[in-house]
Design a protein around this nucleic acid. Structure first.
Lengths: 143, 143
DNA sequence: TCTAAATTAGTAATGATTATAAATTGAAAT
DNA sequence: ATTTCAATTTATAATCATTACTAATTTAGA
């Protein structure tokens, strides 16, 4: 869940046009708690935008990543790239079996950020923090 | 840099054979500070093992990941999977300008791992922790 | 040595992503 | 309103990492 205006303003401010397709992709990114793939977005929007092309979805996501408005999560074990509209430092937790990716709040992660900054002298822009393991449901199935 | 016996023992203990190909892959994983891809490993070993197959590299890496002896890092922007022989919790820090990736030790990150485990009920296998920003050298250049 | 299973090599198949080119759209200027 | 030009979309082809498959090879144990 996120503020859609962050996404749309990022596009407009950089001189890119806010087309209906891009608007719909931003709406979906802002409205979901999931960490969608390009294909999932494409399938969600196809009923409303029958002419939508998968290439457009990829182009828009690439633009938003380049603007820092969303993050690319890298493959979570299923070989496909997931995206995250939440660019605030937080923890992603992926199940290697069912491939769900959930968000986790963390108290300690803020200490890590300042630790990194102090120890390295880097000016930090963001972070992608992905833990992976077996979720409780898949642990139960495995038995 | 890592202890090769951790890798070889993991293979042997699970009943898998320690073939020359697998031994060579373990040596390479243990000797490097990089985060190698399957293709990089293949190209490194081909001079010494001209008959080595890329499929064998993938099979061996898959086995080591399954045993928890190495971690799969997921694609970090270049579309290829990287592996990390360092399974101890640590932080990768990437410079968005010069694209170097360095490792950072962290005290707080261990607390995060136990926090994640306790809060989620997941059985954790590993983590990919990447901070990105501008390194001191590139900050100086930017001025 | 002999046999059965594991492993490897080589190659084909898969599937996500990207590149390309033609068609469409949109904004500005006339 | 029309023209023009660049941005965008669409459709499809190409690419590239990875997986699947099969035959050949190797290994461990009888």
């Amino acid at each position: 869940m996120n503020d859609i205006s962050i996404l749309t303003k990022a596009l407009q401010h950089s001189g890119l046009r806010l087309t209906p397709q891009r608007m719909a992709i931003c709406e979906l990114l802002a409205a979901t708690d999931r960490h969608p793939t390009a294909l999932w977005i494409y399938e969600q929007l196809r009923p409303r935008y029958p002419s939508l092309s998968l290439a457009t979805v990829y182009h828009t996501l690439e633009a938003l990543v380049g603007l820092g408005a969303i993050n690319e999560l890298g493959s979570a074990g299923d070989g496909t790239v997931h995206y995250d509209a939440n660019v605030q430092p937080h923890i992603n937790l992926a199940c290697v079996s069912c491939h769900r990716v959930i968000d986790l709040p963390s108290e300690h992660i803020e200490h890590v950020a300042s630790e990194v900054k102090d120890a390295s002298g880097y000016r930090l822009f963001g972070a992608r923090i992905l833990y992976y393991g077996l979720c409780p449901e898949c642990q139960a199935k495995a038995i």
